[in-house]
Nucleic acid binder design. Structure first.
Lengths: 209, 209
DNA sequence: TTTTGTGAAGTTTTTCACAGCG
DNA sequence: CGCTGTGAAAAACTTCACAAAA
């Protein structure tokens, strides 16, 4: 069952919103309301949610907890992902401390850096190794996903080591540079500056009427 | 002249790649090569680049420097944007120190936080104000773009103050929560956890063959 | 009556394929 | 000859509109 990219994008948004509604103790929500809160058309919300089976109640809406569980199951099975992070700079540390990464779903098994003050020490409870040991440590720990917060110049070298390890299946990169990977390795790239550029482009457009 | 959203997304990628090729001293590049490096079809690259006038040379390709300038002009005019950042935590500081934000195109005029140790002090050369003064300071400094790195619970309050100021036109939010804005205010949201969720979704899909 | 689920219609975006130019 | 620029075709995605269920 193939799911389209824009649908996945929105599913993640529904998931985040539902987590919030769940915490607020809300019982029921309609496609109309979800759409309003996320800036998505109600018909789109219904199409997305009905794609995985009938989950709403006609005339009523969607039961928040039920829908939350449902979307959670679609997005990721209840298993723990084995992660590592390369580049323990400010951004790397910010991510390690980020609430979202402290979920039980994620387990950080290793960090990597070149700074001798960091190598060998524990940061946020995770041991930091030297870049040179990367391929070996990744393999030994069976890391599945690598998070990259290294400078642009080091990004490709890290990716190459991840490939070499043989066990890394996906990379989430925050390095502002394109990287080359073989078929079968999945890379998601978040470019902070690029997001700002996009925003400015639309602001500029708007100014020009 | 309206530009489609996916096109803007790719233009930003071309821009980043061209900056790199430019630094490497490369003279010429073909749509084929650009496509290969970014994982985009060559025909798509040509369509995107030709949309703003004929810029390539048939039989040769694109002159790197010329194309770089060209894309730069399309994306943002040579002017300085007046920015502020709310939430001087680890992520906020990481962004302030990020190479991309040290461009001459951006000028940070104010920071905002609630921590009394931060309020009144300079961080990365920018003065930090208290949240309570936000609307007034934003207006006084004529801030156009606000970068949000506050916890989810404070995000909407910050957005409301930005609206109140009357001068903020766009917001780049890193807070993992949807926010509500009036027509005319542009919000771009980068959700770090959401990106990881998307990656894991596709990894899971792949495992299931 | 309200709100879902969903084919069908509409719109947008991508890809193809080839003419045209250096 | 090689590579761009571009209409036309194909694919992907969104919106509409309404039947069906609670």
């Amino acid at each position: 069952m193939k799911v389209a990219e824009p649908t996945v994008e929105r599913l993640v948004q529904y998931y985040r919103l539902l987590a919030q509604l769940h915490e607020e103790g809300r019982r029921v929500v309609s496609s109309q309301q979800i759409g309003q809160m996320l800036g998505i058309k109600a018909s789109q919300v219904r199409k997305d949610l009905s794609y995985f089976g009938e989950i709403g109640k006609r005339g009523v809406g969607y039961h928040v907890d039920r829908l939350y569980e449902h979307v959670m199951k679609i997005l990721s099975p209840p298993r723990v992902w084995n992660l590592a992070l390369a580049g323990v700079g400010r951004l790397g540390e910010a991510l390690l401390g980020h609430k979202a990464f402290q979920s039980k779903k994620f387990h950080f098994s290793a960090l990597f850096d070149v700074d001798p003050r960091k190598v060998g020490s524990q940061i946020s409870g995770v041991l930091c190794y030297h870049f040179d040991e990367m391929a070996a440590v990744l393999r030994e720990k069976g890391i599945e996903v690598l998070i990259l917060t290294v400078p642009a110049v080091s990004a490709q070298a890290c990716v190459d080591r991840a490939i070499e390890s043989g066990c890394v299946k996906g990379i989430l990169s925050f390095s502002p540079t394109p990287v080359v990977v073989p078929e079968g390795m999945l890379v998601y790239s978040v470019d902070i500056a690029a997001e700002l550029e996009k925003l400015l482009f639309y602001l500029k457009e708007r100014e020009a009427h």
